[in-house]
Design a protein around this nucleic acid. Sequence first.
RNA 1: GGAGGCUUCGCCUAGUCUGGUCUAUGGCGCCGCACUGCUAAUGCGGUUUGGGUCUAAAGCCCAUCCCGGGUUCGAAUCCCGGAGCCUCCGCCA
Length: 416
Amino acid sequence: MIDLRLVRDDPDRIRASQRARGEAESLVDALLDADAVRRAAVARADGLRAEHKSGSNAIRHASNDERPQLIAKAKHLADEVKAAEADEAAADEALHAAQTAIPNIVEDGTPPGGEDDFVVLDVVRTPPTVDEPRDHTEIGAALRAIDTERGAKVSGARFYFLTGVGAQLEFALVNLAMAQAIDAGFVPIVAPSLVKPEIMQGTGFLGAHSAEVYHLEQDDMYLVGTSEVALAGYHSNEILETLPLRYAGFSSCFRREAGSYGKDTRGIIRVHWFDKVEMFSYVTLDESQDEHQRLLAWEREFMDKLELAYRVIDVAAGDLGSSAARKFDIEAWFPSQGAYRELTSTSNCTTFQSRRLNIRTRTDAGNQHVATLNGTLCAVARTIACLFDHHQQPDGSVYVPAALRPYLGGRELLSP
RNA sequence: GGAGGCUUCGCCUAGUCUGGUCUAUGGCGCCGCACUGCUAAUGCGGUUUGGGUCUAAAGCCCAUCCCGGGUUCGAAUCCCGGAGCCUCCGCCA
């Protein structure tokens, strides 16, 4: 949810942002209209309420003679108040709808354009050269680490079992990620995967991409696609006394992957369920760009520990989620695909989420909404896929990066 | 799943039976000032959160006693529905 005051004071800035995203500028004018209508409705209802209130107070002190007349008058006013309040509620709802229709304001410096218009900020390490590379599905099967066939038998397409060393790898990666996060001062958290509608709504996942989200109709609960949701909801309706707050959340993540038919159908790169360690920061708005760089740096640190060749990209405006003002992805090299594929993503959501979730902090200038930022530390399934693909050896074994070995009993190679 | 209790402006709390200056009491904490020749004690004042009005500040107005309805001229208070928390019973990893 964007700042209404900013819309009033500087609508052109919002229009420019809409243009950059390739979205309708007319939504800004619709919002301005809805705001004016609401303010008029509020002023009218407030005035009537004040009149009615003083009328009611007068009844108490009135003599028996004047009382019936005053009551009749107050009765009439009460009806008017009721009608005015109905208008007010309708205007409120219309304003809210107009306000939620507009995505976050794009940060200055964001590349314009769509999905293919990202800017490469950095390229780290040389991709390994592998003759006739096998993909992670094949390697995972040979190592008896990933069982997609039984995943499909039990749960359907885009499900898998991690078995043996695959299961061990999951815990190794989670432990490595958590250890790094704790060292950096994050509070480790195990977060719920099921959340209420208002939390899902507040994080912006029920907008344009609501088809991506699993909904449990019987209970009106949502399965989260990332623990970002629960970590943002964690401080909803609170005034935070000390900033920054940094959490490293572990949870299972669920994605319907509607509209991605045919993409990555093989293996565990794109699945309906996976586990993830997610970084989440609450900071002041002024600090948010610096914090964004810090989150990116921690993501890079993790990639470095896994000894992966990767590049950092600055995602273009048209490819940002509705909550994000800026987004950086890290893409690691998959030899079998001959391509960089997204492994992590970090977004600065500025005050977009905190407005809907009502999260503020005290400042000299009054209570201000905080900025929220999120960043992947390790999405387990995809990271395992990448490790197998990236670190495969000619003899069919997989090289284990040094940082991971302590969590895998010291093994340097995984062999069939 | 069954029975009962609870929910008040940071925390604790009075008020709810018996509707009306409740414009919500007091304590703790916090902030400011005063005093004291110690970062103690004391005194005084302030301290919910939103919205509207206003060039701005001040001021004024409206809302807010878990949430949503209802009764009434008038609801923290009465009625209905819901949520959350606690206790006990049942079931359960």
